[in-house]
Design a protein around this nucleic acid. Structure first.
Length: 271
DNA sequence: ATGGTGGTCCTACCA
């Protein structure tokens, strides 16, 4: 039995719970990781998802900002979350999922966006983003993560690392999300954890690949000025069993859409 | 070159 996991920055789960239900109904991943739930802990709208067979929800939420959650058909064990940069921001939640034939440790992240000005001296939000990524390098390389077990890291990492992860490499080199200091750091996170970029395993690096389109475009699809801010990474053993990915671009056209679309990754039987 | 849209929750802040 294949295992399919999805990630989606929903930009308010309470406002868009009907879109979440539509997605789960029509794409039926085993696990869905959400970011920017913007929903206080304990107020996650799990009812409609239970009805669709997603009986397991692990959430870490706060009022107004951030917030992450894992929604699953399969039982979730060892739920935990970590604070980064000494803040209580809800930007990480982890759980272990028992697939039909194995166990997979899942990490769901919402990396700080970083504000507008890509200068850590002038912009404390950008400084926070860089600090967060540096802490992720250390976390990724730590012994706890190096064990020989199946691991998946997903989320809105707010960095588009490759040239063709943005609509114009040249124009975006000075735009937060694609500056060299950010893309270098994300590369260090990937290397430190021996992660595989599962999306790029299936889509060659010279092909454009986006998961986010700004709300500010007159016509997002016509201008198609997107970025790949959302990611699916896996440990090496799992990467070898990765069967494909899907970017659900049509979700950007749904009524009251999020500015991010879901990404689904599949892994074959022996997982 | 600038401002464009959308979320939270009521006033500005964040994306």
């Amino acid at each position: 039995m294949p295992f399919r996991i999805a990630t989606w920055n929903i930009n308010s789960v309470r406002l868009r719970i009907d879109l979440v239900a539509r997605f789960l109904k029509d794409w039926s991943p085993d696990v869905l990781c959400l970011q920017e739930t913007k929903c206080p802990q304990g107020q996650f709208p799990s009812g409609p998802l239970h009805e669709l067979g997603y009986r397991h929800v692990a959430e870490r939420g706060q009022k107004g900002y951030h917030g992450v959650a894992i929604v699953s058909r399969l039982p979730l064990a060892d739920v935990e979350s970590r604070n980064f940069c000494g803040k209580d921001d809800c930007r990480h939640i982890a759980a272990t999922v028992a697939t039909p034939s194995s166990r997979v440790e899942i990490h769901n992240f919402y990396v700080p966006a970083g504000g507008d000005e890509p200068d850590p001296e002038a912009n404390e939000k950008f400084a926070h983003k860089l600090d967060f990524l540096k802490e992720l390098v250390a976390w990724s390389g730590s012994g706890a993560r190096a064990k020989n077990r199946h691991r998946i890291l997903v989320g809105d990492l707010n960095v588009a690392p490759l040239e063709h992860d943005v609509w114009s490499h040249r124009d975006l080199l000075k735009v937060v999300s694609h500056t060299p200091v950010e893309t270098d750091l994300l590369g260090r996170v990937l290397a430190a954890g021996k992660w595989t970029d599962v999306m790029r395993q299936h889509v060659p690096a010279d092909r454009k690949l986006y998961t986010w389109w700004s709300y500010r475009a007159k016509d997002w699809a016509q201008s198609d000025r997107g970025r790949r801010l959302d990611h699916v990474w896996s440990s090496a053993g799992l990467a070898g069993r990765s069967s494909g990915i899907e970017v659900v671009r049509e979700a950007r056209s749904w009524p009251r859409a999020s500015d991010h679309v879901p990404v689904i990754a599949g892994f074959s039987a022996q997982v």
